[in-house]
Write a protein that binds this DNA or RNA. Structure first.
Length: 633
DNA sequence: GGAGAGA
DNA sequence: TCTCTCCAACGCTAG
DNA sequence: CTAGCG
């Protein structure tokens, strides 16, 4: 068996080669590793021949089942979308949590006494695939990397659309040659990104930051500010070029995304700048962007925003198809005038929740039907209280927005609530018909205040939001909810529990003051905070009340801020704008047992779920004076 | 999804 | 008449 | 102090 084989390296190219001489693989963002198995002993070597076996014990353990061989591949961490992510990999390594890492094997250099470096790539990969399939059929930490024969350009475009890092292309017939040659190429999705300057912040002689944009679907979209990377000289040069281009209004189509400031100047989108940046946020805004210089050779129209969140892409597509089919307004044909609870439903067949692996698509008609069916359950929790709603007229893949004021056009169904200190009345409803009307305008989530009915200034219900970090399993959240229940009972309350419709749990209690002295919001919030702080203090390893540290693993975030004036929590029985059309499901404590799967509570399952009594039916009758509990705490 | 502003 | 734009707001925390 | 996040 040969000693350490210097890895074959790829040359950077703008666009991958085409033609059937080439095959293409997804580029993984991880550590290149040579996996060597000799006499049932497996080791992993870096490209510099360092032995990193101890860092990836799970991979090494699985590899021991292989016969003598040398594999080439990449260790990577996959995020929730199945995309390799270098940040996650480093995090996993620094915390020693390597169990989720995967070795992606893409080449076989030696097998059972035979040096395969001289045989063509596709043949090596063929043997590799067979080897892994036969010897490691159940392996989870070692995977074979498929290749594709489509044109390299298409492949790169597809990879970039999916948010992948890029494409590795390889000569199908070439032997394995160590070092950087011409047989392997890599094309990155964003190498040296360019942006168009749409304005600047500062004044005629002072450049504070540049406002960047790019084209998408023919629209010029704001992409964030660039506040670093230029010096006095280049800033002066930029200003000289910007001033003649100044226009009175922004050219950005998404002006609402542009942060407001008094010293903004707009320019015609002509100048192309090269920038470097850390990442792009889900909203498409550059993070840590830095100016590298002007690209005189490029025209603004060619600067298109490629990598984009999947959801955005869908919206754009839907928008396109919508404009193509002329919209039918008054004459609403197609779906023979469906009416639910006396409310005409437009586009009843529109899928607001797309189909998923284990749940059918949920249409607007399904949503309105659910509201009608569940109105008796939902209304007691929202009637007489200000109600914020989440709307998504184009479904959960499209734009979503909160709305708290009265919805124009729906006045006849609503019971607006005046909230002191607010100009416009707040949304509130009292009837099943109004609920269905909300469904008609694509209200997917209901978030009421925790106030007493008809008294926005008096808190009556506290919600403790147990929000687990991504790596916390649901059983752990269940245990936390029981812990919280015990504490609240000890304080004299009658706690109720429901799923949030996501990965968390809500524990709710009803509270009251004494006859002449109602509880104030400040008192309610302070009390909720104290309960959570006590819990955190007792078991800091399990709980945190710190919002941002939440990202750092293993703990459950106790969110007491749900209990401030104007704050809301999702209502019992409310659907969620999440995959699968889950609902926030009220449960009797006896049903909250380990193994419970919160994703089973969905709109399609509603008929089943609505059988029997509402576990939260009596919550408002169990209000307890918080004064003794505050003293106890 | 629907209203109002703007083109 | 068609197209675009708006639809919350507040506390926390890191930088 | 503010941008970003939840």
């Amino acid at each position: 068996m040969p000693g350490f084989v210097e890895p074959e390296l790829a040359r950077i190219v703008e666009v991958p080669a085409g033609g059937n001489l080439w095959v293409h693989e997804i580029k993984f963002d991880g550590y290149r590793m040579q996996l060597r198995v000799e006499k049932k002993r497996a080791i992993l070597l870096t490209r510099k021949k360092l032995d990193w076996s101890h860092r990836f014990p799970e991979i090494v353990a699985e590899a021991r089942a292989l016969p003598d061989c040398i594999l080439d591949g990449e260790v990577a961490a996959l995020d929730a979308r199945g995309i390799s992510n270098f940040g996650d990999l480093q995090l996993a390594l620094s915390e020693g949590k390597t169990a989720g890492l995967v070795y992606f094997a893409f080449d076989l250099l030696f097998l059972s006494g035979r040096d395969l470096r001289g045989v063509p790539l596709t043949e090596r990969k063929g043997q590799l695939e067979v080897l892994l399939k036969e010897r490691l059929p159940h392996a989870t930490r070692i995977r074979y990397v498929e290749h594709y024969e489509s044109s390299g350009k298409e492949m790169l475009e597809a990879a970039c659309r999916m948010g992948l890092e890029g494409v590795i292309s390889k000569r199908a017939d070439a032997p394995y040659r160590s070092g950087r040659g011409n047989d392997w190429t890599k094309a990155k999705c964003r190498g040296g990104q360019e942006v168009v300057i749409g304005g600047w912040r500062g004044d005629a002689n002072n450049l504070r930051s540049l406002l960047a944009g790019a084209y998408r679907d023919g629209q010029f979209l704001y992409m964030g500010r660039i506040g670093t990377g230029y010096n006095v000289k280049s800033a002066g040069e930029l200003l000289r070029k910007l001033k003649p281009l100044e226009i009175p209004r922004p050219a950005f189509a998404n002006t609402k995304d542009v942060p407001r400031a008094h010293d903004l100047h707009w320019v015609k989108p002509k100048l192309v700048a090269e920038v470097e940046f850390g990442t792009i946020t889900a909203a498409g805004i550059l993070r840590q962007a830095s100016y590298k210089g002007l690209r005189e050779d490029k025209t603004a129209e060619n600067v298109v925003f490629e990598a984009q969140p999947a959801a955005e892409e869908k919206t754009a597509k839907e928008r396109k198809s919508k404009t193509k089919n002329p919209t039918h307004r008054a004459i609403a044909p197609g779906n023979k005038g469906l009416t639910i609870a006396g409310v005409p439903i437009s586009n009843p067949d529109k899928a607001l929740w797309p189909e998923t692996e284990d749940s059918p698509a949920v249409t607007k008609a399904d949503l309105c039907g659910y509201y009608d069916m569940a109105a008796d359950r939902i209304l007691p929790h929202i009637a007489g209280r200000p109600l914020s709603v989440v709307r998504a007229p184009d479904g959960i893949g499209g734009e979503q927005f909160f709305q708290r004021h009265v919805l124009p056009g729906l006045e006849k169904y609503l019971k607006p609530v005046a909230v002191s200190g607010e100009e416009k009345p707040y949304l509130s409803i009292e009837t099943a018909q109004a609920l269905v009307a909300l469904g008609q305008v694509a209200v997917l989530e209901l978030h009421p205040w925790g106030s007493k009915r008809g008294e926005p200034e008096t808190p009556e219900r506290l919600i403790f939001d147990l929000d687990p970090a991504p790596d916390v399993v649901f059983d752990t959240v269940i245990a936390a909810a029981k812990d919280m229940r015990a504490r609240l009972i000890h304080l004299g309350f009658m706690p109720y529990v429901k799923t949030t419709g996501g990965k968390g749990i809500h524990v709710g209690i009803a509270i009251r003051g004494v006859p002449r002295k109602p509880v104030t919001w400040d008192e309610a919030k302070a009390f909720a905070r104290d309960v959570c702080l006590a819990m955190e203090a007792d078991e800091p390893g399990r709980y945190t009340t710190n919002m941002s540290k939440k990202v750092r693993g293993g703990k459950i975030f106790l969110d007491f801020l749900r209990n401030a004036r104007t704050a809301t929590a999702v209502a019992p029985w409310s659907p969620r704008a999440r995959a699968g059309a889950t609902i926030s499901m009220p449960l009797p404590w006896s049903k909250l047992r380990a193994g419970l799967d919160p994703t089973q509570f969905t709109i399609p399952n509603a008929p089943k779920l609505l059988r029997g009594a509402d576990p939260w039916a009596d919550i408002d009758k169990t209000a307890v004076n918080i004064e003794p509990a505050r003293k106890k705490l």
